[in-house]
Amino acid sequence: MEKTINLTLKVWRQANPQDAGRFEVYEAHDISTDASFLEMLDVVNERLEREGKEPIAFDHDCREGICGMCGAVINGQAHGAEKETTLCQLHMRKFKNGDTLVIEPWRSKAFPIIKDLVVDRSAFDRIIASGGYITVRTGQAPEAHTMLVPQPNAEKSFDAAACIGCGACVAACPNASAMLFVSAKISQLALLPQGQPERWDRVRIMVEKMDEEGFGNCSNHYECEAACPKNIKVSNIARLNRDHLWASIRAKLRG
């Protein structure tokens, strides 16, 4: 049943990367409990715009939990408290009348703040560009059925491939590590026959790139898995570590 609630928002406002930034308080009145979190922000923003004030900048696009564009830390939790849910899929029926919500951007050295809640996640793209793919040129592919993939492997590979690259794992990690993100791509490809030829180089190169981008180390807090809207498992990190170890040994043996 639709009803409306009133909320107090404490929102991080920062004009540009150089600005020190600060929290500002907004009253969000008459918010329908059927609205999504981003629709609640829209309502607040339209009120600001009508007053000639700059609305709160936040990234978003698909608004159905798949593009990975949205994300903010709500009361200390990346994408808010609901499990396996992106911010755009979080609905206001999960909040109570009178709640105060502290809304902040992802915070990580590797994700510089651009404005308000918008951060620069291009480090993720650079990690993928370093080796997060299978090298096959268009037109080179063999007939699809020449390569069988055991169904359980295909499923596991898919579980890892479901990552939307939103960055919540980094935001949630006390060390701002990108291990969950990187291990998801490593796992997706390591579980498929197509991914084997480059498997050992891929893991070394991507991990190296991740470190270079300024992400922290993984010290097994598992906050990433808890925050992940797509339920990417930390078992992927274990697979990455195993592959990485073996890849390093191989590299040494080969001199």
Partner: peptide, 13 residues
């Protein structure tokens, strides 16, 4: 389909 499979797209099997 051939191209996507070669790229590692995890189609249902």
């Amino acid at each position: 389909i051939d191209q996507c499979v070669a790229q590692g797209v995890p189609f249902a099997r």
